[in-house]
Design a protein around this nucleic acid. Structure first.
Lengths: 400, 400
DNA sequence: TGCACTTTGGCAACAGCGTTGCTTAAGTGG
DNA sequence: CCACTTAAGCAACGCTGTTGCCAAAGTGCA
């Protein structure tokens, strides 16, 4: 029942609008982006040009935003383009997998500046693992001139159930030693930086959110809404990261996205979780007997369920098994989905493979640490007049 | 890519906070609620007491809020309790089903003031159906003294695929005449009132959202987050309404909640949608052969999939078939879910049956029309300091 | 009964947000 | 070269929630 504290005051208003502008600047900065003008920022946010001028002036004074040349001629004074000062701040992204450690250093726009990978057995004692992580992060930061004092924080992505809010691991399958370990705070103390802990699949989903370079062909988010998709990760397990209306959906216990343990066959084989007919068990069995196409088609059935339940715009695939034959997976998953989504939802849902490949989780982890800067939540809507008096309006329950 | 316009200005800020206060007043008003004091409003919203005083003063001047006695003695001046002036405004809720029309008139707090039901064949021509709907709404409004000029709008809940944003029906299964019909605008014109169109399952889910009277036992939303649940409706079909973090999840095309067409058996019977193994086909077949408990257990398997994917807090059941034996359904669904959610998510998920019974959809439809008044979206969080300067913060992608 | 104390809640002045009206800057095109 | 167009900053402003203060309205002990 406790809805939390969500009253808004002027500093919150300012933060919200600043984050909104920064978010748009980021999408205009990533990849080969040339920047975005103040007026376009005003159009996209709904703020007045003057308000955008003030906000961008503050950001420029803080060194977070630079001018980047002129826009196309329009018959009058050309628009001045703005973009993020990419190297003004950095964030570290850590992918702590069962047998491997990957660390990336990302700039303000999320671009990877440096990346390092090390073999690492997650079964080793916690102190040892933490020292390896902290060491590789420090090494990566030191290798980039100017990054040393400018790292905003670190994102840490791990497999298995965990609690994002508390920063604590639950049970990493097969590795009982990590149960309940406060990984976030332990790393934060060693690094002297804020750390955000999340599931690997959630991190990967963040990396796939279109920050400019990666919007899937044909995927059109609905009117006024953010992007919605599922990132399906098939590696040593099968999980998903869900982005709904442009925001990661974790669930209250960081339990969302347990895609692999949906039941799709009443009398299927017994899964490692103890139940029958889990999609993960069927899928991995198919992979195990070399039937990659069969695994992909099973994945497609699960993906079709996801589309039916959540009305997402697109599906993105990743994980080692998928990356071993990306074309086949994209093709077979789509083939398995099409008849179901066409008949049930009347549309074809685009299926792609995450372009960042094996580094997608680490890149997403860095975005976890950058996320507080780039908000996207609305404060509300224009006031509504009720019986002649302006009373109120808000996004509330209804969205149209 | 178009994130929509979400910049916030002072009127938006005011609307947001006013809606927040109204929402808390509503939860304190429904049922046997005695009201809520200004100071508690301040604590719950995070606003200062003075800000709450100003907001409630405006609402009292508008006639939307009344004083309602004193709070418990605390050793000083007792708090003055406030509550919604329930009869200050009304909203109509329309449940247009295949064979029946139900209209309720709800007061500001969502309480049902009057309700009427009529047999109505949805296969009749559109004009005839609309006239019946408008007629029953008018009749219901006229029957309540003081309601005539005070109706904020009408919510209209229908079965089958439709577009909430456009207010247009897609194809109502078996009734091709309604395909593409702009039902919302047609009714709005006849009534001279704003109309909101939504799926019956979404409306029912709104009615189940705890506005005070209906919080399921044992359901604890996660820290800082809103309630999350799935409302599963088993009647002539099988569908769901999803509430995630306190907000209805519709999807960009109002397609979310197609719970019945998830595949749970690779070689199952052919469903009406043309695919094999849909949960709806299996479930309805079980009902058809009198195996109600079997249908309930199948429902439980689907519900467990929902919990795995979305990490929801609870499951609520409704629909004619469920209401024919509520106890059995609650028991068997829970029994089928428990082994799956215990092993996969480590918890038991409460299962209840919607208390509003057959009227739940119409009640929820009325809430659709009231929703714009009672927002629950946050503007952001307190500012975050980055390298010594206050830059920004927002809810953004990460929620902890 | 009276008085000290506690707590509520309004009044008034204020800081800071985006907005408005206007001016200046910097181009294009005849 | 000049009229015109468009971009973007300056200054004044309205309105938001906030702060400091004070009156109102209780409780509880002497």
């Amino acid at each position: 029942m406790n809805r939390g504290i969500s009253g808004a005051n002027l500093p919150a208003l300012r933060s919200h609008n600043t984050a909104l502008v920064l978010g748009l600047l980021r999408t205009a900065t990533v990849g080969a982006g040339t920047g975005i003008s103040r007026l376009e920022l005003a159009e996209r946010t709904g703020l007045t040009p003057q308000a955008v001028s003030k906000i961008t002036a503050r950001l420029r004074a803080d060194g977070l935003v630079d001018e980047a040349g002129r826009g196309a001629p329009t018959g009058g004074k050309p628009r001045t383009l703005l973009r993020l000062a990419r190297r003004a701040r950095y964030a570290a992204g850590v992918h702590l997998d069962r047998d491997e450690l990957t660390v990336v250093l990302a700039d303000l726009a999320g671009g990877v500046v440096d990346a390092r990978t090390l073999p690492l057995d997650l079964g080793r004692p916690a102190g040892e693992v933490l020292e390896a992580v902290a060491g590789l992060v420090r090494e990566t930061v030191r290798a980039t001139p100017g990054a040393d004092g400018a790292v905003l924080g670190a994102g840490l992505a791990c497999p298995g159930p965990l609690d994002h809010a508390a920063g604590v691991l639950h049970r990493v399958t097969g590795l009982p030693g990590w149960e309940g370990y406060p990984l976030r705070d332990a790393l934060a103390e060693r690094l002297g930086l804020p750390v955000v802990l999340d599931k690997d699949t959630n991190a990967a989903a963040l990396a796939v959110l279109p920050t400019g370079e990666d919007a899937a062909a044909g995927a059109e988010p609905g009117p006024g809404a953010g992007d919605s998709f599922g990132y399906l990760h098939l590696g040593t397990g099968l999980g998903a990261g869900l982005v709904l209306d442009g925001a990661l959906h974790r669930g209250a216990r960081t339990g969302a996205g347990e895609f692999g343990h949906q039941a799709v066959a009443p009398d299927g084989p017994v899964c490692a979780c103890g139940n029958r007919g889990c999609l993960e068990a069927l899928c991995l069995a198919a992979v195990g007997r070399g039937d990659t196409a069969g695994a992909a088609r099973l994945l497609g059935v699960g993906a079709a369920n996801l589309v039916s339940l959540l009305d997402i715009d697109r599906v993105v695939l990743g994980g080692r098994t998928v990356l071993a034959d990306p074309g086949l997976f994209a093709r077979e998953v789509a083939a398995a989905m099409d008849p179901r989504t066409l008949r049930a939802a009347g549309r074809t849902v685009p299926v792609t493979v995450a372009t960042a490949g094996r580094r997608v989780v680490a890149e997403g982890a860095a975005l976890l640490a950058l996320a507080p800067l780039f908000g996207q939540t609305a404060v509300g809507r224009p006031p509504v007049r009720v019986r002649g008096r302006t009373v109120t309006a808000s996004r509330g329950d209804i969205s149209g």
